[in-house]
Deep mutational scan, measured.
Amino acid sequence: MAAGGDHGSPDSYRSPLASRYASPEMCFVFSDRYKFRTWRQLWLWLAEAEQTLGLPITDEQIQEMKSNLENIDFKMAAEEEKRLRHDVMAHVHTFGHCCPKAAGIIHLGATSCYVGDNTDLIILRNALDLLLPKLARVISRLADFAKERASLPTLGFTHFQPAQLTTVGKRCCLWIQDLCMDLQNLKRVRDDLRFRGVKGTTGTQASFLQLFEGDDHKVEQLDKMVTEKAGFKRAFIITGQTYTRKVDIEVLSVLASLGASVHKICTDIRLLANLKEMEEPFEKQQIGSSAMPYKRNPMRSERCCSLARHLMTLVMDPLQTASVQWFERTLDDSANRRICLAEAFLTADTILNTLQNISEGLVVYPKVIERRIRQELPFMATENIIMAMVKAGGSRQDCHEKIRVLSQQAASVVKQEGGDNDLIERIQVDAYFSPIHSQLDHLLDPSSFTGRASQQVQRFLEEEVYPLLKPYESVMKVKAELCL
């Protein structure tokens, strides 16, 4: 049975990233139509530049190519590739079939990587351009969430054990800070992308030097003109047959890092959902379990974690691919890159769409948070109580021993009897502590235990987050809708 299948058929496997999760716009960027249309555009740009620099290419040939950029006979191309065992030459023939007058000058002087690699770089750039505003929107939604809850005390956790208090907004800023680093890295790697350009079979530009009869300047002009037509500021000066596969490492490393950030955020949300302090959106008709109707599973956060793990592992592909590119190139890269580049971007696209949807509907339960604080705060307040007693004339050592005994009794009630923490009640009825009984409410005010959390939130948002989001103001209103 021949390899390949009808990918629109229910009898043929289709990647869930495309069929179930990723956005239509990201799927289109990695589609065959987008790819092969870009090949034709690159052939047109090459012909236009070659004509401008004096090669015998007519206006009629150029116009014929322009008129057929979208006229792609995919069936013919597939048949040609089956016959020739070469995808680029299959599309040269297919393009030439609908451009008979231009057929002889299509791909003039070029090698397969002229269309293959340059198209990949265009796709990487455009895919990054799709991700950047999506990530900015996630940051914006979380920034709104953090600002609104900047002063809401909550129990902090280290080692997932109760620690000092923080605020809900401050905790959210930990998430935002990681995503801001990801946004900066995505922008950097996007701006650092260079075009492969017009380089020939081993990167020496020998074929173009021959076409222009040894004119170095025209060869350099050709490279520059096509690079500018493709919208790049610069091209690699040095290439082998391909652009260095280190570029793929750079791009997928940034995406993998984004995956790590999203995994951490969504894990926190899942843990908070278990504590009943916070939940992701839950639709009115949504079913959490087929057997347990009360369940409210954090399905979206779980999906993000599941896909983020996949995204983090994909960076190993370009690392290994770059390491086995012998001399000017081997074909070890080809099949692998067809999979890992598309999957990385479709996965990143999915987790950003999902995280935006989550961040637009996060639900906080202040009463649950308050109750958990009441359970733990008495123990945390013991040092403040000791200091207040010393100020009232008591002995630190005597007070410490009193607190120690009462704390152990209260802990026994919590752990052995399943009761509430009654340390404060014990202190309130103990005559030894009568000098500070009137101060206990103040000493137990949760806001006095959150330090500068709310001020940190305000400063972080104003100095770091809002300036970073400013270039994306025009796209901030787009909502994230999930079908599944």
Rank of each mutant, 00 (worst) to 15 (best):
S261M: 02
L128A: 05
T354M: 13
A163S: 03
G393E: 09
L193M: 08
T58G: 12
K170C: 05
Q285E: 08
P16S: 13
A110V: 07
R270D: 15
T267E: 07
P56M: 12
T94G: 07
C304S: 11
L130K: 02
S31Y: 04
W326Q: 05
E417I: 09
F212Q: 03
M181Y: 03
S151A: 08
A136M: 15
S334A: 02
D422L: 06
P293G: 10
Q161Y: 13
L209D: 15
Y294T: 09
Q416M: 07
L128V: 04
D87Q: 09
L128C: 06
K477F: 01
T330Y: 03
F379D: 11
Q63V: 05
R309L: 11
F36C: 10
L406A: 04
K276Y: 13
V465E: 00
E376K: 01
T154H: 03
G240T: 10
L142G: 09
P318D: 00
N336P: 06
T111V: 03
Q456F: 12
E279T: 13
C304W: 11
C113I: 02
R171C: 07
R85I: 01
R33A: 12
S207C: 01
S140C: 08
T166H: 01
Q241R: 05
E370G: 13
T52V: 01
E79N: 13
M225L: 04
V198K: 14
F28R: 05
D445M: 09
K470Q: 11
I105W: 00
C27R: 08
G156Q: 03
F28V: 10
H400S: 09
V219P: 00
L211E: 07
E463M: 00
Q241D: 03
H107W: 01
I369E: 12
M380P: 15
F95T: 08
S67H: 02
E213L: 10
C304Q: 00
R141K: 11
L341A: 11
H400V: 01
L46Q: 04
L222M: 13
V315T: 09
R372C: 15
E481T: 13
M380Y: 14
P16L: 12
I339N: 10
D248R: 09
E220A: 09
I237D: 02
N118T: 05
Y243F: 14
K66F: 07
S334W: 03
T242K: 04
Q210E: 02
Q408K: 03
I358R: 09
T350F: 02
G288Q: 02
